[in-house]
Write a protein that binds this DNA or RNA. Structure first.
Lengths: 238, 238
DNA sequence: ACCTGAACACCGTTCAAGT
DNA sequence: ACCTGAACACCGTTCAAGT
């Protein structure tokens, strides 16, 4: 009664060259995110780009959360592979910081995503990359967590905010236009109640985001250095 | 031909006690955001809570962006009014930082919102509150912007990330459960490739978010102090 | 002037049906 | 095993119609 006659060949499971896979989906999603921002990534747009049905994506990816987590992971993983490895600890930390900054700048949506899911597993490489250098910097064990926390939080926080700025300057705004507008607003403030922002407005336009970011890193590293001379290194470490 | 006879009274424009207003809408939106997070704030839910039609809200608020901007503004404005005014500059900066931290912690959605719109006008008070104290701290004018940038970015970045953590620990997770889960993951890492995170895992659970945040502030302030001794204060200031 | 609520275009997700 | 695409429940926003 069974009609198994139709099975002439042993069903070549050989995939078509354009077969769907999580990797291809993530790649397409990153392209869409880079081009159009978070708002542009929909399952319909993704399916159209992959020339499939919107439901097919769910066979490879549980839901949109997992999709975003995977895209974020892909970007973050790329940061550490491009960071220099054999410089001194201070230079290594600066290199990792700049790597995060540039990755966030190139993919403005990553910062917001990491913000949403703070302990993102993909961050482990970066976390270790920073923390593992503190010993070589001469920071005593008992003080390492606070130093690490300050550095890591600063890096993610600032790189993310810069990326948000980058998002705001899409369209016809060039890189300095947004800053110029903020500066213009500040220069119109009452000088009696806002003396600092008034004088900062003039300097704001000429400053480079990346330089300012690195200046902050140096400030924290200086704080760490000064802490070593102050803190007793004879403290008991667990 | 015109039928104006119906106008017997001069149309008392006196509002009902529960008349709609932007203020009432924002208040209700904050309640919804606090209770259910960003996902819970819909125009339908808002309309239901205000006992009106969803379209009525659009008479007072342009769209959801303006609504979120207004709610964020309301929370941020409250930070500075509660920050101590007459302590020394270092204490004042710490007080503002803690004010932001606590406000973000109480309203976990504010951080994400500020992240989305970086130069948010409501932040001006906080920006000036920090920047205006740097002179009294003894920071030379030419170095103030970098110090200000480091402090402000750190405060917003870290307070925001902590708030994201707070969001993750909703439901049956208590405050330490999330941290414990991260610590457990880290303690399972390969000790050869992740020595720092392995040893950090043990200490992580016992640490208080707020203390760690303040330790970072102190680290930056120490960096600022050490910078003063190094940088020439005879530099020409614009 | 202000409010109502149905209607529109869109979204994430599901699922019976195909191969 | 993997894909299709209509269907469902939702969303922000609009707008003719009411008061």
């Amino acid at each position: 009664m069974s009609r198994q006659v139709m099975v002439t060949k042993p069903q070549r499971t050989e995939r078509r060259a354009d077969a769907l896979s999580k990797e291809r989906i993530v790649k397409a999603a990153i392209d869409i995110l880079d081009a159009g921002g978070e708002g542009a990534l929909t399952f319909r747009a993704l399916a159209a780009r992959l020339q499939t049905g919107s439901g097919a994506i769910y066979w490879h990816v549980a839901d949109k959360n997992e999709l975003l987590a995977a895209t974020t992971r892909a970007i973050v993983m790329g940061v550490m592979t491009s960071a220099a490895a054999d410089a001194g600890p201070r230079e290594a930390i600066r290199a990792i910081a700049v790597g995060v900054f540039d990755a966030f700048d190139a993919h403005a949506w990553v910062g917001a995503q990491l913000f949403r899911e703070p302990g993102h597993p993909a961050m482990i490489e970066i976390f270790e990359g920073i923390g593992g250098r503190l010993g070589a910097l001469g920071v005593p064990v008992h003080a390492q967590i606070d130093c690490w926390s300050a550095l890591v939080n600063y890096i993610i926080g600032v790189a993310g905010q810069n990326a948000a700025n980058a998002r705001a300057r899409s369209g016809n705004d060039d890189r300095t236009a947004v800053l110029a507008r903020v500066a213009a607003t500040w220069s119109r403030l009452d000088p009696a109640t806002y003396p600092f922002l008034r004088q900062a407005a003039a300097q704001l336009a000429g400053h480079d985001d990346r330089d300012q970011f690195l200046a902050g890193i140096d400030l924290i590293l200086d704080g760490i250095a000064s802490l070593q001379t102050v803190a007793p290194s004879s403290a008991p470490h667990a």
